[in-house]
Amino acid sequence: MTRSIPDTERPNLERRRLLVGLGFLGAAGIAAARMPSEKIDYLGKKKLEDIIPKQIGSWKFETASGLVIPPEDQLSNALYSQLLTRVYSNEKGAPIMLLVAQSGSQTGVLQIHRPEVCYPAGGFSLSPVTSLNIDVGGRTLTTNNLQAVGDQRVEQIVYWTRIGNHLPPSWAQQRWAVARDNLAGKIPDAILVRVSTIDNDRGAANAILANFTRDLLQSMAPNDRKILVGPA
């Protein structure tokens, strides 16, 4: 049975409904005011193919194949605005593999893949991730360093991610960087840079990867360099 509302209670009920409605309206207004609108996009209309040199120190571009890349599904297709893969070689040692993935806007819904996702999907087992600091001329770049072991090869990996003006080392910090910028009204772009080589000797390989990373950044124009590592 439906209880009828006495006339004496109707004014209070209407006031409660009004207050609830105003509360929802206020919350919607705050949410709209906080919607991110300022874009951080250092790449803009440029192409990764054009800003990454094909000659990096003593290394020369050889091919675009042979790298471990994210699975080609609908999610990974939506993640990246641009994806560049290259293999460089010189006369001194094993080839260097470079992957640069760019996403034009990070709103927290999509996150760029990290090697911790890509390599296990390709059948590799991974070592714990450690930090590797690289002197890149006037600043220290803190990168992530790990080893991937597969059936056919052992790959040593150095990588970092840039989210807007941040270089978050971990997955959690990457997500927090996106959330912090979104709350500040900003939509950050995102870059993942991965440099790797096939070598069982992790120490020797890391020294080579550090040299390649240093040469990569120094060979780029200053305005293009911040696409990979943000402003100095």
Rank of each mutant, 00 (worst) to 15 (best):
G138N: 03
G185F: 07
D41L: 02
A210T: 07
A177P: 03
V117E: 14
A207R: 13
D201A: 10
A205N: 03
N165H: 13
A33P: 01
Y159D: 03
I96F: 03
F212Y: 07
D199V: 04
A207P: 00
S127M: 03
G66M: 05
L228K: 04
E62P: 00
G230T: 02
P36D: 09
P95W: 07
I56R: 03
S219C: 08
P115A: 02
P115Y: 01
V158H: 08
K39S: 11
M35S: 11
D189M: 08
Q174M: 13
V195D: 00
T2A: 14
E62H: 06
D224N: 13
V20F: 14
A221K: 15
Q102M: 05
V149A: 11
E38V: 14
I52L: 02
R225V: 07
A190S: 14
L43M: 04
E9G: 00
L217K: 09
N133V: 13
N133D: 15
Q111W: 01
V193T: 15
D151N: 11
I40T: 09
Q74G: 07
P169S: 09
W59P: 00
V154E: 11
F61T: 02
K60S: 15
S4C: 02
I96E: 01
G23W: 09
D215K: 09
M1H: 11
F61C: 00
E91L: 11
L228R: 01
E72L: 12
S76H: 15
R139H: 10
I134K: 04
L18R: 13
P6W: 11
T161P: 00
T107P: 00
I30Q: 05
N145V: 01
R202S: 14
S196D: 05
I208N: 06
N90M: 04
N133R: 13
V109T: 10
G23F: 09
A28D: 05
I40M: 08
N144D: 10
G185H: 05
S170T: 15
R180P: 00
V20M: 13
L132H: 13
L25E: 04
